[in-house]
Write a protein that binds this DNA or RNA. Sequence first.
DNA 1: AGGCGGATTGAAAACGTTTTCAGACGATAC
DNA 2: GTATCGTCTGAAAACGTTTTCAATCCGCCT
Lengths: 328, 328
Amino acid sequence: MTTGIKDVAKAAGVSAATVSRVLGNGPVSADLREKVEAAIRATGYRPNLSARRLRSQHSRTIGLIVSDIRNPFFTTLSRSVEDAAYRAEMRVVLCNTDENPDREAMYLRLMQEERITGLIYAPTRTTAASLDERNFDFPVVLVDRTGPNGVHDAVVIDNAGAAGQLVGHLHDHGHSRIFGLFGNTSSTAIERHDGYRSAMIMRGLEPDARFVAPHDRAAAEALTERLASGERPDAVVVSNGLMLLGAYRAMRAAGLETPRDLALTGFDNETWTELVGSGLTVIEQPVADIGRTAMDLLFERLNRPDMAPRKVVLSGRLVARGSSARVG
Amino acid sequence: MTTGIKDVAKAAGVSAATVSRVLGNGPVSADLREKVEAAIRATGYRPNLSARRLRSQHSRTIGLIVSDIRNPFFTTLSRSVEDAAYRAEMRVVLCNTDENPDREAMYLRLMQEERITGLIYAPTRTTAASLDERNFDFPVVLVDRTGPNGVHDAVVIDNAGAAGQLVGHLHDHGHSRIFGLFGNTSSTAIERHDGYRSAMIMRGLEPDARFVAPHDRAAAEALTERLASGERPDAVVVSNGLMLLGAYRAMRAAGLETPRDLALTGFDNETWTELVGSGLTVIEQPVADIGRTAMDLLFERLNRPDMAPRKVVLSGRLVARGSSARVG
DNA sequence: AGGCGGATTGAAAACGTTTTCAGACGATAC
DNA sequence: GTATCGTCTGAAAACGTTTTCAATCCGCCT
């Protein structure tokens, strides 16, 4: 139906093989190459990528599995991955799991059926646990979250350290009843909790943490509840941007202001955290770097499949703003 | 190398055709089907999508071309498109053009090579102009932005009406020197300007608009400049979320507060617009509906290719907040 | 002059499926 | 008992490329 390589060959008076070689920069004499290129332009020929991929056994496709592209962290991650991919003349297929292990399983299956070149993947905690056993026939680079052992390459930030930094910053600014609010689906949240916990203990403070589903709603509920019960904390650490939003709303709904009543801090330097009141103190993650690094690891792994697995740890940056200011 | 349909066939003691029929829910007797399914499980067989697509001539892939996934409008648009796609067992290939016509051209080429089933596309104004002449061999649904004539289906919001609504709202609340700040790359911005302009004239107000590149930086510069020169406006209408952010920053940098000094309003109900001060008055777009509707149009078009092109116009919703409150 | 080597070229195989076509079988209708 | 039909099955073609392999051509060496 549509014009194929044979039509071009016929139009140029050469064989299909020669056309293919022109397309792939193979060895072709200058005049034939020119004739073929003219024929390509004349016929408006477009290669069929499915056929090409089937025959060449290279999909030139990388998979990207995240929980939700609307999470700003993953938005800019995906953008940086795509930029790197298209620079390498590759395509990206993007999947949203909504933290749902079933969807995760289905997308992992899809990745195999696409015969992707490599996968960049932010797994749920439950799936991450069993990830080391599974055998994929493409390299996998874990981002943001990681499994226990480390069969796969990974790039993460120093979550425990960053959370500790936040605790230290708050303590140094005169806060001591620091409440921690963490997600319950990712290794990342766990690590942040651990960092929070040890920093608290190290400074002789009493840990006071809760784990909830990583939504704004769940976070809002949890904070509302905590504010209503017992002695009120004077500071809060929240484990990601979306939850921080929920916490902020809950705080406002309770009629509280930051930093006057509560020093609200958390992860992810999203736009609104800068604009709101005197600004929220947050840990900024080098998201674009994470994406770029992940792609680098992927490509290196493709070149040297037998290299030992590597984990790259980038560090977050504390952005101090009004919400953690010393008060009173 | 990897296990193919023939290996499964051998393991099950049937022909490749039968395995294929089991996979595609073709007519197969119950016992053979069972044997084949067992063999599939035993061999861990995964179909090769490239081969399947090549032979069946159906890519089951829809393309999505937007300017930048980090623009929240496109973020949630892409999510709603993907949800609809995966519900229909299709994949999505996502492309970011950065408003760059060259990248647009390259991605359009890519779409043809992928032999996509259909395309959802937010074109640059320059590309949109020539879009009607081009002949794609897949249906195209324009979103958010549209070309002049309308050879393709489209789903947009009533931009002129919404901008007019904003002007009316501001005027009703006592503002009359209303400055308009619009992007210069999309038909959408043009329409919003037109709506702004006619509403101003209709109400006997003097239009005062500027077109700039649709960034936060450009918007910030433009507003800063405007605030410094001549009689200061008492209200501003900004044509999209990112530019609104720039405008807000510029306003704050100039030491002004909303609504006291300036009634800042615009498009896109992003998170931060609600949280900032007493909130920014904005036009909220039904983004998820736009995506869903676009997919609907696409599927209908696939079923009935000869139907006349349709344009679906959804309407934005005015979300009145503090920034447009009557003052003085 | 004959042979050899490198550079180009074309014919045909291969990639892993789906689909067409025809055959086999059993049942139903006469 | 035979003809007819419908259902299931397998062999082989087809999808549009890339890649292998052998052939051809040309120049150069002995």
